[in-house]
Design a protein around this nucleic acid. Structure first.
Lengths: 324, 324
DNA sequence: TTGAAAGCGCTAACAG
DNA sequence: CTGTTAGCGCTTTCAA
């Protein structure tokens, strides 16, 4: 691996000059520029980012913290984020917290060790205090982490309303929401609150079934769906996120329901799994592409100290399909 | 951010000594060790990996190249890989190639710039020559990249056979396979070949429908499914990967088929999307956890020059569900 | 058992 | 316009 010195020597100039042409900085005469370029070619020189990072105290790397990348929602999110950040000249370093103990704390340390420029925090967090004396920009993705930590999220109030309206069209009597653990503070709770309120306003009975914390496995979704069907015999509507919705749909027939005739299902998130499958699901879609773009813009602005984009919640969209 | 010098100064020792206790190397008296530890605590010192990397010419980072992280197969793969590598003290740097032009070449350069220790290549590759004079260990995930590049993959011959046997139980007359573009060399082609051969041996007519290169979007799966139903009116069986299988299932009813009565579907891969949904799909499951573990072991061995694990293809598993 | 010093490959003043 | 010099924070001989 040729270094900048090798290039300098071959071109007959100083290393600093090579650095200048490398970064298109300062004034370099066309002739030396040519010489340097040629030397680079001949040595097939590739500059070392790690040396550069050390010297500049900057890595152009953003840590992205999520519970699990195999969950469709986060898969689609990270896919979009990676593209948005890549186009802004940032790399993402993934950190998956679900299957690790102390993942949060370990990751905070890693953030410092690796000298990442910033972090996008999309994992469930119980103890948010660790983010306070962290010396780097933190962007919260759909979480409340601290008072002065900016948040990117969907307009969940709208989402809840859209779901309620879709449901109300069919005059349900008793609907249940399968919701995440209530001890983690996330803007996403809003949609369930709004949904419940709106249905209550129309005299519809609503029950909430609470899943455990960090529920992201098939088994957990499956259990939730089964319990709901056991607990509430007379329901005619279910509102929950994509994966448990899918399980409810799968189990409905064997539990004596037919969708959408006697049971309406609307899901929240609208990932790709809702549109594949035998029965496509009516869903409230979060615009992950927009959310990702906004997140990328925001974190880059925070890193560079430039002006922040408008962080108004991104509208959700009702997508009517076969289940409601 | 306190540096090693700060710690050294506070502890009243030399930086090199701090380095020794940091890495549990050499002989350091218990008393100085204590002093150093204390100083670290007081300064809440976090060592810089980038300095360390520069000095050691090693980053403990593996590049993972895949077409798209939002595709369930790769989502599950990367999830498992990240965990396996993390437990071996490696970080993964994701590179998603599908939505970028020249992604492969750019990534190779990045690999060098970032000085990654090795790469796991799971993306479709047309030009494999770029990997030849790459000075770092490369592990191919389910691809043929070069003669001397080790491959981790499933036992696709077994997979094809299992699929064929599942299908043959129902005495099909005419089945179609939806397959990937044939101009990329992957071990995965084997299962379609074996499947076809096995069915042919039993006098079953098999047609192949070829998707375009790098087909990973819903629209592409949808198109494929529609075309198949248009092109072949008399089919009673479909064999393809999870996502197109899901689309076929979704479209079947409106095309006059009922699954599994008049149309059998078996999918390949067995990602989570096959078990969610209204009708769970009979599938040939690739054991992604084993594949990931093997990959992690192998790439780490390559990086360290230690003995390679046995790279025998990993058995697939037939999972019988509702579609065949 | 510890410290001094050189070096990893780059950037950033600053002087000429 | 270009070269010299001094770091960035760590590891690693080599002496002492």
């Amino acid at each position: 691996m040729a270094s900048i010195k090798d290039v300098a020597k071959l071109a007959g100039v100083a290393a600093s000059t090579v650095s200048l042409v490398l970064n298109n900085k300062g004034y370099v005469s066309e002739t030396t520029r040519q010489k340097v370029r040629k030397a680079m070619d001949e040595l097939s020189y590739v500059p070392s980012d790690v040396a550069r990072n050390l010297s500049m105290n900057r890595t152009n790397t953003i840590g992205v913290v999520i519970p699990s990348i195999s969950h469709p929602f986060f898969g689609e999110l990270v896919q979009a984020l990676e593209i948005e950040l890549f186009s802004r000249n940032y790399k993402v370093m993934l950190c998956t917290t679900m299957a690790k103990k102390n993942a949060e704390i370990e990751f905070i340390e890693m953030l410092k060790r690796k000298n990442m420029d910033g972090i996008i925090m999309g994992a469930h967090t119980m103890d948010t205090s660790i983010y306070n004396n962290l010396n780097r920009p933190v962007l919260a993705f759909d979480r409340y982490i601290g008072d002065d930590i900016p948040i990117v999220c969907s307009d969940h109030a709208l989402g809840g309303l859209q779901a309620a309206q879709a449901m109300l069209k069919h005059n349900p009597k008793h609907v249940v929401q399968i919701i995440g653990a209530q001890n983690v503070a996330t803007p996403a709770q809003t949609y369930h609150e709004v949904f419940q309120q709106e249905l209550a306003n129309h005299g519809v009975k609503v029950d909430n079934y609470e899943m455990e914390w960090n529920a992201f496995t098939m088994k957990q979704f499956d259990d939730a769906a089964r319990h709901v069907f056991e607990l509430y015999k007379d329901i005619d509507g279910i509102f929950t996120t994509d994966m448990p919705a899918l399980r409810c749909l799968g189990l409905a027939a064997s539990c004596g329901y037919s969708v959408p005739e006697t049971l309406k299902i609307v899901s929240y998130d609208g990932t790709v799994v809702t549109e594949t499958g035998a029965v496509p699901i009516t869903t409230i879609r979060q615009q992950l592409d927009k959310l990702a773009e906004l997140s990328a813009e925001a974190i880059v602005a925070m890193v560079n100290g430039t002006e922040m984009p408008d962080l108004t919640p991104v509208p959700t969209k009702l997508i009517s399909r076969k289940t409601c």
